[in-house]
Simulated assay, not measured.
Amino acid sequence: MPKSLFWTRTDTAGAEHVVLDDGQGLTARGVALAVDPLPYTCRYQLTAGPDWATTRLQVEAEGAGWSRSVRLEPTGGRWRVTTGEQGDLDAALRAAGHPPAGLPGTDDPDRLAEAADIDLGGSPFFNTLPVRRLGLDKAPADTARRVTVAWVLVPSLMVVPAEQEYTSLGPGRVRFSSDTFTAELDVDPDGFVVRYSGLAERIDAR
């Protein structure tokens, strides 16, 4: 049966809802809303193989007077990155007192060559990809794995490589770190995030 997961943001006003099927690999469609750095809606479609390695991600973000899209697909040992843009996100950001966002996608896909996973900014759902792919949700405590991800910044949809480390803290708990940032993740028996400290908490149907 498909699953429906819903998180509310704890760092800002926002939420995320995803409908997924993880029977064989993963197919997921989700939507994320937030007001920081300016109000936006982000929709995504994600597929991953039985090994939980990403096979395709399509993301669309939009706000008042602008919209952007990016598609990532691994092909021949590298990532194919396709982008689209309408309106002027940078103008909207400047009007709100924020610096410009830069262009969506990447000017050099080869920088993503080492990426095994994709991370979508502000989304607790995407942390499940390396957790499941590496089996960290069931690994002994202190098992640590370092990964390179293609990090999709939101709302700009700029794509950059990022080094991340996931460490099992025992059943149902994983520590996530990247550069100087660290957070603890509570995960359910299927590896999906229940609580991401400082970012989001899941609300389950009753």
Rank of each mutant, 00 (worst) to 15 (best):
residue 3 K to S: 15
residue 13 A to S: 13
residue 126 F to N: 09
residue 31 V to G: 07
residue 109 P to H: 03
residue 58 Q to K: 11
residue 153 L to C: 07
residue 37 P to R: 01
residue 128 T to R: 13
residue 82 T to Q: 14
residue 123 S to R: 07
residue 89 L to T: 05
residue 177 S to F: 08
residue 29 R to H: 11
residue 198 G to F: 00
residue 22 D to G: 00
residue 94 R to T: 15
residue 203 I to A: 14
residue 151 W to H: 15
residue 56 R to D: 15
residue 78 R to P: 00
residue 20 L to T: 02
residue 33 L to N: 09
residue 186 D to Q: 15
residue 82 T to M: 08
residue 105 G to W: 05
residue 198 G to C: 03
residue 199 L to A: 10
residue 5 L to S: 10
residue 160 V to N: 00
residue 180 T to G: 05
residue 176 F to I: 03
residue 154 V to E: 08
residue 58 Q to Y: 04
residue 69 S to V: 00
residue 28 A to N: 06
residue 164 Q to N: 13
residue 184 E to C: 13
residue 28 A to W: 14
residue 193 V to R: 00
residue 100 P to C: 05
residue 67 S to R: 10
residue 158 M to L: 09
residue 84 G to D: 12
residue 149 V to S: 11
residue 42 C to H: 02
residue 164 Q to W: 11
residue 7 W to V: 10
residue 95 A to R: 13
residue 152 V to F: 14
residue 172 G to W: 08
residue 55 T to C: 10
residue 114 E to F: 03
residue 32 A to E: 05
residue 203 I to P: 01
residue 177 S to P: 00
residue 45 Q to M: 10
residue 106 T to D: 04
residue 129 L to N: 01
residue 186 D to E: 14
residue 109 P to T: 01
residue 164 Q to Y: 06
residue 94 R to F: 11
residue 190 D to E: 13
residue 66 W to G: 00
residue 8 T to F: 12
residue 172 G to A: 05
residue 108 D to F: 06
residue 128 T to L: 11
residue 54 T to Y: 09
residue 147 V to G: 10
residue 89 L to N: 05
residue 126 F to H: 15
residue 67 S to I: 00
residue 17 H to K: 11
residue 187 V to L: 12
residue 35 V to K: 10
residue 109 P to R: 04
residue 2 P to H: 15
residue 194 V to G: 12
residue 132 R to Q: 04
residue 170 G to S: 05
